[in-house]
Amino acid sequence: MANDFSRSAARYFAIFKISAKDMLSFRADFVLTFIMKILYPLVMVFVWTVVFRTSNVTKIGTYNLTGMIAYFFIASVIELAVFTDLPYSMQHDIKHGSIATKISMPIAYLRYIFSSNMINNFIWGSIIGIPLLALITFVFGIHVSVAQFMMFVFTLALGVLIAYSLEFIIGCLSVYTNDINGILTFEGLMASLLGGALIPITLFPGVIGKVMGLLPFQFMFYLPITAFTGSTAIKSVVLLVGVAWLSAFIIIGYFIWKNAFKKITSVGG
């Protein structure tokens, strides 16, 4: 039993290790991606500085300029953990037929593809994200209480799981469509816009804001950031909405994968 456990732990560790090595083998790509991800909030700094200066206000919604800038820096850190390569890996395996070699390995394909992709987010999120978050906290003088931090971790975990299950569903679609890039771009845009990576969603007017409060995307950016900075209290009913979305995506993902896998194994990828 213990032997079984250590053996299966060794298998997952091996998947993490080789995926991490594979990712880090593109050194220039890794560095450039890093710089790009860090530079992105600077664009937002310029945009919002101009907005605040030209409109001569000290506050937009509940945000002052510093708060707004902090918001986008945190968003860029969160982005490291949220978006995945999962659908691209699945599409590649399915379209090129290399899924056959992966199905023939002594590990279920889903476990393999999830663990080999999650390492990506893990590296970006923990090794780079956490120090950056600490730096942002220090520079902007954000006070993070234990309760705030717990809420941040919880909402972010929900957001990551929602993103993964949603992108998994999109990955499955590559069995049925010729190309999922269009759907992925659309999903990325929805997540950024409706999730609050481009504009904090409380700034959307009335009905639109309310609708967005019911959507799953807010868990990817807006809610974790709000939890972290403690600017607005998060109602527990909102968390239930997130759990409901996650459950729904997992159920949909389960059935769509069941069908997709049946299709793959009857055609052969």
């Binding site: 091996a14 080789i18 090595k21 594979d22 593109f26 290399s98 056959a100 002594p106 590990i107």
Partner: peptide, 20 residues
């Protein structure tokens, strides 16, 4: 369809499959 990791030396794939 090769099972090898394209960006790494083959020894890495060997060790990966050893554990797998």
């Amino acid at each position: 369809h090769e099972q090898l990791y394209w960006n790494l030396p083959a020894i890495d794939t060997f060790e990966f499959r050893k554990a797998l």
